[in-house]
Amino acid sequence: MSGVMSRKKKAEALLLSLPAFLLYSFIFIYPMISVFRLSLFKWNGIPNSPLEFVGMKNYVALFTDRRFFTALTNVGIFILSGCILILPVAFFLATVIQSKLKGKRLLKTSYFMPQVISRTAIALMWYFLLYPEGGPLATLVESLGFTGVDVNFLGSQTYAIYAITVINAWTYAGFNMLIFSAGLTAVPEDVYEAARVDGAQGWQKLRYVTIPMLKSSFQIFLLNCVVGSITTFEMVYVTTGGGPGSASEVFGTLLYKNAFTYNNYGYSNAMGSFLIVASFLASVLLTGLFSRGEKKEAAV
């Protein structure tokens, strides 16, 4: 190939990359850098009022804010609920859609349906399901004979966050079902065959054959769960707005509230920086951990 041709090819490749590069740099990377820069300033959101350089003060305010620690705890609750609620349900659903049950197509459609519904619509639907005065849940509890039980979960400082994790589980179980379902498809039939010959049945098959073979599915699940929990926002914002008080606050609602209710944009940007760093580190650390685990196994 001649040099002219290759230079022409290079120029063409450059041109082809350019639109995406510009779009991404301008609308994604540039604002990201701005977040870090602006987190060092105090600003009330009014353009004519000067940015006041305050160094790390916004971070000090962030890390000494009791609401930050509430949010941290709540993110922990989200991650845990993912592991004890979404994981087993999603796994179970995956086995259903991989099974030979009659009507599994209908089942699959229903399990998957929440994926295509707007999160705001889901949050509102559940808001009414959990409505304490005559909502379906309250009616159910009453018809089961538990009169006088307080079912106002979203209005409770103790239970609001758990109620939201249930809504969250309803929303994302179908998505995670597909992760495990893909993993199950990838398990070759002859592995099961070998296990059967060895006398493995039911639970044993699940415990010693299926689950170890699905290791990468579990890793993907965990990664999604951790990063998704750190960055959760919509579900909380629509159902409780972070309340009652600050009981169900998460990082996203704090960022939003500090900017648009408190005019404290510096704090919000510090929170934004924290979110960027936290989700980046979570991704990198978890991925690193998984690949190290694999190497170790290979060595053994």
Binding site: N44, G155, S156, Q157, T158, A160, G243, P244, G245, S246, A247, K257, T261, Y262, N263, N264
Partner: peptide, 17 residues
């Protein structure tokens, strides 16, 4: 500026115990 929301939100928590 944030005082109003703080007071309102906090006092509201008497309803969640």
């Amino acid at each position: 500026t944030s005082l109003m929301d703080v007071v309102r939100t906090e006092v509201t928590t008497i309803f969640s115990g």
